[in-house]
Design a protein around this nucleic acid. Sequence first.
DNA 1: AAATACAGTCTCCAAAAGGTGCGTATAATT
DNA 2: AATTATACGCACCTTTTGGAGACTGTATTT
Lengths: 136, 136
Amino acid sequence: MAKSVPLPPTRQKPWPDAGDPRVDALVTDVIGRVADKWTMLILEALAEHEHLRFTHIAKLVPGISQKMLTQTLRQMERDGLVDRTVHAVIPPRVDYRLTDLGETLGAAFCSVWLWAEANLERIETARATFDSRAAI
Amino acid sequence: MAKSVPLPPTRQKPWPDAGDPRVDALVTDVIGRVADKWTMLILEALAEHEHLRFTHIAKLVPGISQKMLTQTLRQMERDGLVDRTVHAVIPPRVDYRLTDLGETLGAAFCSVWLWAEANLERIETARATFDSRAAI
DNA sequence: AAATACAGTCTCCAAAAGGTGCGTATAATT
DNA sequence: AATTATACGCACCTTTTGGAGACTGTATTT
């Protein structure tokens, strides 16, 4: 199929400089850990609710298993995204909240979230077109 | 460590409305596919270079295997993020470029990329602190 | 005549992700 | 006295992901 819109031949890159390869590698690594389904969903839950306990997050993130919740929270804590506060009571009570760093990441991901929300239909349409074409 | 900046007690959620659960599910699904390491890296390569051939992308995305490159490009094509143009020549020549949709996603992810770049050190520090504390 | 380049596909195998269920400690509840 | 609630850790198992390498087809190059 011919391309419908002839894009201008020269285009400016909207990306930050891909200068230092070491920095690139580190950024890639960080992205790899942070651009994760569960991380994003937990991030959203915490961004919405300020502070939450373990089981409450589990309810807000449908489909997550205890294991994944614990694992992801630990990782986020290690990366300095969430703050974990253990109250020495029985039954145990642990509060989670975003750190400043976590909040800024939430803000950054917000644009992606909005993008997904705004372009849902376009994606669905594109998929349908692609699939029907592939089926021929 | 105590938090340095005391955040205001009431906080507005910076997130889009989590209204419709069906929309939420779809958004989550889209996010899950799009927030992928290889997708992000290929997206970056294409955002920087306008149009690229298969082997060229492979060189720009270090560590990617042929299989993953093919697979991810197909997926991105299916989702309407990239445009694949086959030139009927021998040896074969295939050009990839971002669609408008792909470009907007690139722009959205740009903030995450910048965040990662800007906060690399804070993350490393947080990890070091966490690990040293865990080792005790 | 053999090698090379391109853009893959296909098969086999290893590694990682992720789910399920069980165990733990203890105070309050029934 | 047994049950419940909480926040996990641990072991086992399945599913998914992803890498390595061989194979394809043809025109150009050596």
